[in-house]
Amino acid sequence: MDVNENDNNMDNQVLDLVKTAPNVIGQIYQDLAQPGVQAVGKALGTVFEFSTSFLLPVKLLNEKFKLNFTKRLNEYKEKLEKVPEEKRCEVHPQIGTPIVEKLSYTTTDEIADLFTTLLANASNVDKVNVAHPSFVNMIERLSTDEARIIKYLIDSIDVPYCSFRAISNNDGGGFLTIGDHLTLIPYYVSLDYPQNINAYLSNLVSIGVLIDKVGLYKIDKSNYDEICEKNDLNGLKQRLVPTVFKNIEVSKSYYEITSFGRLFIDACIKK
């Protein structure tokens, strides 16, 4: 038997396994008569049909995989049950299939919450318009900390920031940045790696959630004053001016949530 014949036999075995594997809902839930289970089946019926393309029924034969996927499907079921029955709709495979695939291996609760909320909104006739297909890949590009920042932004329209520049004592001038794009986020969001905050904000800019409005600033000074206070601007001046630097100047600006970013937040964060 040549290599091609071996490959063909392997392909046929996989196809036979997929065809004979129990349906996804039946593998997860024993009581198919539960209203919540029926709601999931109706909303994701077509999605699960397409899901056989990435062998979901076969993967569910792995107990560890099944436990994680069951947890995520139950989280979705809880959100779906909060949608009035007359408002529920079938999820379009274009958005539902990649979400189900990614939920199957997502072990981080913060990221899974974004996926299940997006899936629940795609199951709601009043919310389906906010469920853009590109949001699936955007979620996959987020870290746990960034998911927490997205949740923090739910009621925001912008993120004010300050940068501290220490002006040299030398006659030639020049400055040293001693605080760059300082925001209030690390003080109000529990981050695993707060030292990465600027990288997180840069990533949110790169995926289109935020835009840096450098050179512009808000008339309301309260947030800027709080940023300076929490980053001990007065203490820095007392320690460094004029012995080390001539002065420490503050530049003010903000990140603005884009219209696409607002749609993303509304689609993926549960209010």
Rank of each mutant, 00 (worst) to 15 (best):
V24R: 00
K79A: 09
K79V: 10
K64T: 12
L56S: 06
K19S: 03
P93S: 05
F50H: 10
D7S: 14
S104P: 03
K64I: 09
I99Q: 11
N68C: 01
L56M: 09
V40P: 06
R72C: 07
P35D: 03
L17Q: 15
N68F: 00
P35S: 02
T20W: 02
K42N: 11
I28C: 02
V91T: 10
L73D: 01
E63H: 09
N12L: 15
N62I: 07
V91P: 02
V58P: 08
V3T: 14
T46G: 10
A33P: 02
E101H: 14
Q94E: 09
F54P: 03
K102M: 14
T52A: 15
V37Q: 03
V91C: 05
I25K: 00
E81M: 13
F54A: 03
A33L: 06
A39P: 10
D16A: 15
T97S: 12
I99M: 10
N62V: 05
L32A: 04
D2E: 14
I25P: 00
K71S: 07
R72T: 08
E49G: 07
G96F: 09
Q13V: 15
E90S: 14
P57F: 03
P35A: 04
T97Q: 12
I99E: 08
F50I: 04
G36S: 07
T97H: 08
K87A: 13
F48R: 09
E86M: 13
Q30N: 11
L56N: 05
K59Y: 08
F54D: 09
K71Q: 07
Q94V: 14
A39I: 10
Q34H: 06
Q94H: 06
T46V: 13
L103Q: 12
E49K: 15
K79M: 10
Q94G: 05
K42L: 13
E63I: 13
L61A: 05
P84Q: 06
G36I: 08
V91L: 04
T46D: 13
A21M: 06
T20P: 01
Q34E: 08
N23S: 04
G26H: 00
Y29F: 03
K79N: 02
I28Q: 01
K77C: 01
S104W: 04
I28T: 00
